[in-house]
């Protein structure tokens, strides 16, 4: 029973990691129907910024809490600047172009950013500090569920709830939904579509950066390539849950995380990916729009 619980919670953590990144994919897709392949790279840049900032702040002798808060904050701002710029440079000029063009542009951007970090930083793995302290009340459960894992799961759920509120109940959320449904019509009723798209990219990048920081401090190391692998899995999670749907991305992440965790635990880790992608195929056969995906007029 304890073993089952360990796998369940392990899968939950893994799923939350996927979900945090998947949220960015799904939002961008919801608004402009573009698979933003550079999203994984924004996640990687977020982690790198946090690493650099926390090293600098440690050098200046800041205390633990201010290091976490400040370095995360700077990482979030820096990544959203990247997200914003990527959209302006690589996607905006192609808005009227056939759908394949921005897709290729996105792949190009992804490769560019990877190589940029490779050259500007290093190709080697770098140790990432454990930013999240070990909570005292978790001491007795560390062998099943660590403090970092708890923070990851809680953050994911919180972010999902906040996003849902943002989209359902705020003015900007309404504008986003309108843009998603019909860009031309939204423009006609006075919505600044370009601004809304930029905001979407900024929100997506913020979430990628949050994911980057949490995951890096969970696994304790980063390099320029982490965004690619995490991005592929997160994209799978987004498709699984129904791309364009916010709760769908989180559910997709959880389902994928659990599948992998239980496949490893009860079968063999050799077949981890086999089970994960077999599930994806099965779900897409019976529900092509994903678990929570709805008809296209209800995206975002």
């Amino acid at each position: 029973m304890e073993y089952f619980l360990q796998l369940l919670l392990g899968g939950l953590t893994r799923g939350s990691i996927y979900a945090l990144i998947a949220l960015g994919y799904t939002m961008v897709y919801g608004i402009i129907e573009l698979i933003n392949f550079a999203h994984g790279e924004i996640y990687m840049i977020g982690a790198f910024t946090a690493l650099i900032m926390s090293s600098v702040l440690t050098l200046y002798g800041f205390n633990e809490v201010s290091i976490i808060v400040l370095s995360s904050l700077i990482a979030l701002i820096y990544s959203s600047a990247y997200g914003f710029t990527v959209e302006k440079i690589a996607y905006k000029p192609l808005r009227g172009a056939p759908r394949l063009s921005p897709l290729i542009s996105a792949i190009g951007m992804s490769i560019f950013l990877q190589n940029y970090v490779l050259l500007a930083q290093t190709s080697d793995f770098l140790p990432f500090p454990t930013l999240i302290p070990e909570f005292n009340f978790m001491k007795n459960y560390e062998h099943v569920f660590g403090s970092t894992e708890l923070v990851i799961v809680v953050t994911t759920v919180l972010v999902m709830i906040l996003l849902t509120i943002l989209i359902k109940f705020t003015k900007i959320g309404r504008a986003m939904r309108a843009t998603a449904q019909d860009k031309k019509m939204a423009m006609l009723v006075g919505i600044n579509v370009n601004k809304i798209i930029s905001v979407t990219f900024i929100i997506g990048s913020v979430m990628a950066a949050i994911g980057g920081i949490l995951i890096a401090s969970h696994i304790g190391q980063i390099n320029f390539y982490i965004g690619f692998i995490a991005g592929i899995k997160a994209f799978t999670a987004a498709v699984l849950g129904g791309i364009g749907s916010i709760p769908g991305a989180v559910l997709g992440g959880f389902v994928l995380g659990w599948t992998e965790s239980f496949a490893t635990g009860y079968v063999s880790s050799d077949y981890e990916d086999v089970f994960a992608f077999a599930l994806l195929v099965l779900i897409l056969i019976f529900r092509p729009e994903g678990i929570l995906g709805k008809s296209s007029s209800q995206k975002v």
Partner: peptide, 12 residues
């Protein structure tokens, strides 16, 4: 067993 290189989590 074989594990997947580059995975985000090996807790299982």
């Amino acid at each position: 067993e074989g594990i997947t290189p580059g995975a985000v989590d090996y807790s299982a």
